[in-house]
Structures are given as structure tokens and as C-alpha cells.
Simulated assay, not measured.
Amino acid sequence: MSDSVTIRLPGAPRGKGRHRAQLVQRAGKTRIHSHPDQKTEIYEGALRVAAGIAMRGRPLLTGNLDCTIFAFFPIPASWSKAKRAAAIARTVRPGVKPDWDNIAKVTDALNTIVWADDAAVVDGVVRKFYAEKPELVIVVRALEPQAARLPL
């Protein structure tokens, strides 16, 4: 049994959206109703399905975990052949929304599917690239119990 898993979700990467709030009046009382962003809920649901398929009934990963996220964005159709080639060669990178931290936040959807709680992730990185086939790829691996090498 492997101590790592790779999750692939086809389509343009999305970040976690903000909760929405609205004023609601009922029976003469005004209150604020808060609800999650619907597009985020749909995206995280698709990510949960992809994670379930990747896990194939395996037990949750335990111990300290490393999470590397590769966000492959679509290459804009308006780009020239030269700029498109540079994007494919990864010399041009996407400095576009969503922000890297919002991409990382969608991994909350992996709780109870890949790991018990995302608090187990002690190392993580988000890398953004362009690709002809946009997708989100998440690689989670268990770390060996060893002391971290910190710069002095």
C-alpha cells in the first residue's frame, strides 16, 4: 500500500470563494443570512468525488503530510503561437486569479476522504502553470518521521 495519493480534477482550477451574506426580513425582524458560494460548493463536491476515486477505498493517510498542488490553467486563445509555445514550455506562468492561497483552501474538501483533518498537512506548495488541458492535480504524501531541516 502506498503512502501517497494523486488526485486529478479536470477543468480550470478554482479557488475557494467567499461566503455570501444577505439581509433577510421575516416577521418584522431583520437578520443576516450567510451561505457559502455555490460555485465553490460544486467545485469542492467534484474534488471530493475525484479524491474518493483516487483513494479507492484505502484508509486515510496519517501522520505528517506533504501536499503539493499543481494548478494547470487554460492558455488564452488570443495568445500568439510564440506566447502559447512559451506557456507550454513553462517559461510563461499564470499570474492570474485565483490566488495561490485560495487554491490551497479547496483542499478542505479532502477532510475525511484523504486525511482525517488538514491539520496533518505540515508542508505544502501551490504551483501555477499553463497547459493545453487545464486541471488541478493534488499530490499528498506521508512524510517520514524525521526532524525538519530549518535554515539557521
Rank of each mutant, 00 (worst) to 15 (best):
T107A: 02
W79T: 03
R48A: 15
P151Q: 08
L9Y: 08
R141W: 00
Y130F: 15
I138T: 09
A86P: 00
K105S: 12
V114W: 02
G63P: 06
V125Y: 03
E132R: 13
V106W: 02
T30H: 11
A119C: 03
L47S: 11
P134Y: 10
A142G: 05
A131R: 13
G17L: 07
M1R: 09
L152E: 10
I53L: 10
S34I: 14
A109P: 04
A119N: 07
A116E: 12
R8H: 11
A54P: 06
E132N: 09
I53P: 00
V122Y: 02
A86K: 15
F73D: 05
C67G: 02
G45A: 14
K81D: 15
K128V: 01
P134D: 09
R90V: 00
A116G: 12
G28I: 01
A50Y: 11
P59R: 12
G95T: 09
S80R: 11
V106E: 00
A142E: 14
F72H: 11
V114E: 03
M1Y: 07
G11H: 04
G45E: 08
A82W: 03
K133L: 05
H19Y: 14
E135P: 01
V122N: 04
G15L: 02
V24S: 06
D118H: 07
V139N: 12
P145G: 11
M55R: 07
M1S: 12
Y130S: 02
K29Y: 07
P76N: 06
T91C: 01
R84P: 00
A116V: 04
L61I: 04
A104P: 00
P134A: 10
D101S: 13
T107Y: 04
K97L: 10
K128M: 10
P98F: 10
A51H: 03
P151A: 08
P98T: 09
S4Q: 14
F70K: 05
I53H: 04
K97D: 09
G11W: 05
R127Q: 11
V106Y: 04
V96F: 00
D108Q: 07
A21C: 07
T112I: 00
Q146I: 09
I69K: 05
V5H: 07
R127E: 12
G124T: 05
